[in-house]
């Protein structure tokens, strides 16, 4: 099937994504059968309730005017029952109505770090099927869900006022990732202070990154944010740094696959012990050298 046709056929995309999500080796086969293609991944992360989904909805709509756009929104699976309540569509009123945008929810299925086990394959598949922009919204991130950094070309960190003082912004983890910061809910008290504090903290760590105030409900600041994302992606393309991002995405895709193989296929296998001993032994040797 040609790339263009595949993009237009949402049913085919949707059914293929299910196969990718449920079987890793099938996923590899499917991706291998499609030609490589350049596309961009925009990651959106931040605390639960910061406004990620609503903001993603608006950004995707703006993006879809020029680019073929897809969204994957991840919500947590229960560590106890494996069940999940996926509620991102509720906030994505424009994108779910649009004929142009493909929206898919995914459960994290036991993966920590804010993503889901099959996310790398799902994103690569969408890119190769003809989408130019894939927005990936992580689970509500606490302090250490930073995996999105390895998947996305540009990461948007969404903050909202009222979730703690500036000690929170000094902690390691989530505040160390992000290429663009959005302080959402700008109509609430404390928003501009949060933006100032975040700027000060970033400056201390030598990272001067754009910080923008937004209101995802009425759309204030969103167009500017969209332009910042486009600009960041454009700069990656021009400088050639995008190639490094893509290389890293492939590397982490493979690493993720290895991890899943160990977890699912080798957890009760004698070979696992052999593999672990090999890795530990090599680690010791490389530490000594």
């Amino acid at each position: 099937m040609s790339e263009r046709l595949f993009y237009a056929n949402q049913l085919a995309i949707s059914r293929t994504l299910t196969r990718i999500e449920n079987d890793r080796s099938v996923a590899r086969e499917i991706i291998g059968s499609l030609e490589e293609r350049d596309y961009h991944v925009v990651g959106i992360t931040g605390s639960p309730g910061a406004g990620k989904s609503t903001l993603t909805d608006r950004l995707a709509l703006l993006s879809s005017k020029e680019k073929r756009t897809a969204i994957i929104a991840i919500d947590p699976s229960s560590p106890f029952t494996g069940g999940a309540f996926l509620g991102d569509r509720i906030r994505m009123k424009s994108s779910t109505k649009s004929e142009e945008i493909f929206v898919r929810s995914m459960a994290s299925r036991g993966k920590v770090g804010g993503l889901s086990p099959s996310i790398y394959d799902a994103v690569e598949f969408l890119g190769r099927s003809g989408f130019d922009r894939v927005f990936v919204e992580t689970v509500g991130a606490g302090q250490s869900e930073t995996d999105i950094e390895n998947l996305a070309d540009v990461v948007l960190l969404v903050l909202a006022p009222g979730l703690g003082d500036d000690v929170q912004t000094m902690k390691a983890g989530i505040m160390e990732i992000g290429d663009i910061f959005a302080v959402n809910k700008m109509d609430l008290p404390g928003a501009s202070q949060l933006a100032t504090r975040t700027g000060a903290i970033l400056e201390m760590s030598g990272r001067e990154l754009p910080i923008i105030l937004t209101n995802s409900i009425n759309g204030q600041g969103v167009e500017e944010l969209h332009n910042l994302i486009e600009k960041a992606l454009g700069e990656l393309d021009i400088s050639g740094a995008i190639e490094e991002k893509r290389r890293r995405r492939t590397l982490y895709n493979n690493l993720n696959s290895v991890y899943q193989i160990i977890k699912e296929d080798f957890s009760e296998n004698a070979k696992l012990e052999e593999l672990m001993n090999y890795l530990l032994e090599n680690r010791r040797l490389s530490d000594e050298s």
């Binding site: 069940g83 996926l86 509720i90």
Partner: peptide
């Protein structure tokens, strides 16, 4: 243990079917 996608209130038949298709 199921994965539940909830659409929210006041959906048209179109939107419901589209959600079922995309998901």
């Amino acid at each position: 243990g199921m994965e539940v996608i909830y659409t929210g209130l006041r959906q048209s038949a179109d939107e419901v079917v589209k959600a079922a298709l995309q998901e």
